[in-house]
Design a protein around this nucleic acid. Structure first.
Lengths: 190, 190
DNA sequence: TTCTGAATGTGATGTAGGTCACACAGCTAC
DNA sequence: GTAGCTGTGTGACCTACATCACATTCAGAA
């Protein structure tokens, strides 16, 4: 499926745009290709865009003072990624985004999103519900962190996104779960 | 300050409503009073409303199979609370909400919020940005969980919301930080 | 007053997961 | 080929936090 069709199907799930409106909506997105390992947003960057994944896989992550990496999100096709804190507050990136595999994205700038939202009521509706869903998901993950041990969280992740098991190195899955790769590896034993 | 004024000031930070529009906006909210300890949403309830706190303090929390409580959020004046998963997806509550102190809220139903959002573009704008900010905050808390030990998270919490230290029992602060009350208590020693 | 029950502190001990160290397999580059 | 790099497993040991038990303080009710 073509990028435009993928976005259209995705948007239609949350908002009602006429074909003309969607053409206008789509006109603000820029297609970009990145190679495996390539950085899209690096710590310290000015952040101007968010990215809608068409194919491939991104990760958004944080690296602490001890150089330990924590993954906030894997972004598969039809997912969005950016450093939203930096994007919304016009600050420098503290979250980085890079490519786990060769990836094709549609890029939307902050200014263009706001323009779209102010001109098209249904665009504002779409982005409200996109974030509503993200908010609920983030809170679910928070609860899972507080309530469940690593094994539960790992099984939960694999149940939600079985495709990750094959695409993503275990080291990165450990960084998403917030444990060491050694501990994740030892889960097989039990 | 009166409830209407508090909401007006709060909304004005994110959206531009004329006085007439705000009157209309406000007309959908119902004022409610609750006593300390009173439940607003209990596990298993149908969830129809979200609550804007005027005075007092709420907590939203989850209780697991071992009867351990985890606090998702303290809601102080000008904060919103509900079980958003249940509210948005029309499912039964898994998150409960109750009163830490006597509390006055403005209650908005799901249907009324959607009506407002579809009729008033600026209302949709307001709710989009409210959730955007919540989303960013939830992700910050997630990172803090992965990256920081209990002491850091406790200090972070007190720096952000110093008023909690006096209002809220330590047991509840421990439930927010995701540690036992004993461990929290022992932080004084170090 | 005395009793009761929250809220908090603190000692002893258990455990999940972290850290360090090393091994080995599979790739790619030359 | 072999050198080097990434990904993964696993043993030995360490640490942060949990759990259980008990003590203390304070507020409100009888």
């Amino acid at each position: 499926m073509e990028a435009k069709e993928i976005l259209k199907t995705h948007v239609a799930k949350l908002a009602s745009l006429t074909d003309d409106q969607f053409e206008y909506f789509f006109s603000f997105f820029k297609k970009q290709h990145f190679k495996k390992g390539q950085a899209i947003i690096s710590e310290g960057d000015a952040v101007d865009c968010e990215y809608f994944v068409i194919s491939g896989c991104l990760k958004s992550f944080f690296i602490n003072d001890d150089l330990k990496m924590f993954i906030l999100q894997f972004a598969m096709p039809t997912w969005w990624a950016s450093d939203y804190n930096a994007l919304y507050n016009h600050t420098r990136a503290t979250i980085s985004v890079d490519c786990i595999s060769d990836t094709e994205v549609l890029c939307l700038s902050n200014a263009d999103r706001e323009k779209l939202c102010s001109e098209l009521h249904q665009a504002e509706h779409f982005f409200r519900w996109r974030t509503n869903k993200g908010y609920v998901a983030a809170n679910k993950r928070l609860l899972s962190f507080m309530n469940n041990n690593v094994k539960c969280r790992y099984e939960e992740l694999l149940k939600l996104y079985p495709e990750l098991y094959n695409i993503v190195p275990k080291t990165l899955i450990a960084a998403y779960l917030g444990v060491s790769r050694e501990t994740l590896s030892r889960l097989h034993q039990a």
